[in-house]
Design a protein around this nucleic acid. Sequence first.
DNA 1: ACCTGAACACCGTTCAAGT
DNA 2: ACCTGAACACCGTTCAAGT
Lengths: 245, 245
Amino acid sequence: VQARLSRDIFVETAFALADDEGLESLTIRRMAESHGVTPMALYRYFADKDRILDALAEALLAEVALPEPDERRWDEQAKELLTALAAALRRHPNAAILVLNRILQSEPGLALIDRTLMLLKAAGFPTDAAAETAGYALSSVVTLVVTEPGRAISGDVETHAAVLRVKKATLSSLDPRRYSHVVAAAAPLTRCASTEAYYDRGIHMIMSGIRDSQTFVKRRARRPSKAASTKAVAKPRRSRTTRLR
Amino acid sequence: VQARLSRDIFVETAFALADDEGLESLTIRRMAESHGVTPMALYRYFADKDRILDALAEALLAEVALPEPDERRWDEQAKELLTALAAALRRHPNAAILVLNRILQSEPGLALIDRTLMLLKAAGFPTDAAAETAGYALSSVVTLVVTEPGRAISGDVETHAAVLRVKKATLSSLDPRRYSHVVAAAAPLTRCASTEAYYDRGIHMIMSGIRDSQTFVKRRARRPSKAASTKAVAKPRRSRTTRLR
DNA sequence: ACCTGAACACCGTTCAAGT
DNA sequence: ACCTGAACACCGTTCAAGT
């Protein structure tokens, strides 16, 4: 008998569930139900639920339109790559977070990071710095999508609009003596005026960070004892309890 | 009868579970068990499980040693603030991701973003840009902690070391003709040579992005038609199925 | 005010069996 | 090769009751 089901079909179903109701609603039983099939039918295609989530991350990364290397400056090409990643993730924003710790676990993710490393090497980064910076750049794009102000979690438009209204009203009604800047920024904190401007700015910021990361290496190499910035990070672990309310 | 239990005690227990075994092991039943109590006992202190996770995010943010505003440059103060946030999150790296979408939902989170907005206003950011940039900056610090290469998920040291060895070996044994840069960077991709250098570099990159975000606004205002970078993001949603394997 | 006990709906997963 | 059926361990949560 020819199989009516397949990995790809289940991946589509999983995306649909995540898009409509969020990742918490993405269960094996509901995926089976939407195909009129027993939960156990999925185990023919995925070893366990984690492998389903891996497949979603891989599918998202496979959707990245990876631009071919050309003769332009490395940073132009890197910016195009990050933009392509953002575009792919934005198709399934509720699932995007799955990519955060799975880039090294699939073929398309490896292709993405290999290309990023190539561009950073061309920029003159040593291997260690390139690895850290590449990871940072790709993760930052994921974060941009996951934390987009006003992003819809529920697929229902009316519910989403109501949630946003409440969020904004909550921020607006805070004590202006304590949170004056939050009150003033209630609107832009809860939804983007322009999502395109948001992503343009975000990717611009990531690229600026990458470019400047080079000068960071050089400065540290010249002044290795200038380690004032590590002070707070390295401070001793104190008891946390006294601060809790 | 005086209560033997409390919100703070349960928050401590929740952190211990997350630190030792990861967020998936953080269940109401296991929290109850570790206090020799019925699962229902927790509902006297938390309305539901989501409120427990909210309390963890709030406790993490309450631990941030928010520096008082002073007369130094805005970017020095902002850098100190981001460093303090990273230090707080690093105490419970498995729980850090809970903060990602909860900054606006607690008093300490609001204090943090209010201070960030204040510094950005002092830097000359208009309100909209300050809101987007502040959200980006704080989220990026969370991402830095969550994606730290070689971060331990399990509390068991031997298990962790074994996992890292396998990860590195997997990357090293990839086809060098397809993933030459990944193979060359297998070691730094799987663990930090120096975690302090990693956070220094990461926060340095975030700060560079913030500083440059100002010039981004000005450039856009002067050349509003230069919108080539929005092209890929705005491209039409196509069927994804053909690309999947 | 604080905690228990029993029950329910829903979850991932094992094992054995059907066609 | 592909799917079913029954069962199990574990989960969050409701409701009612105890002290």
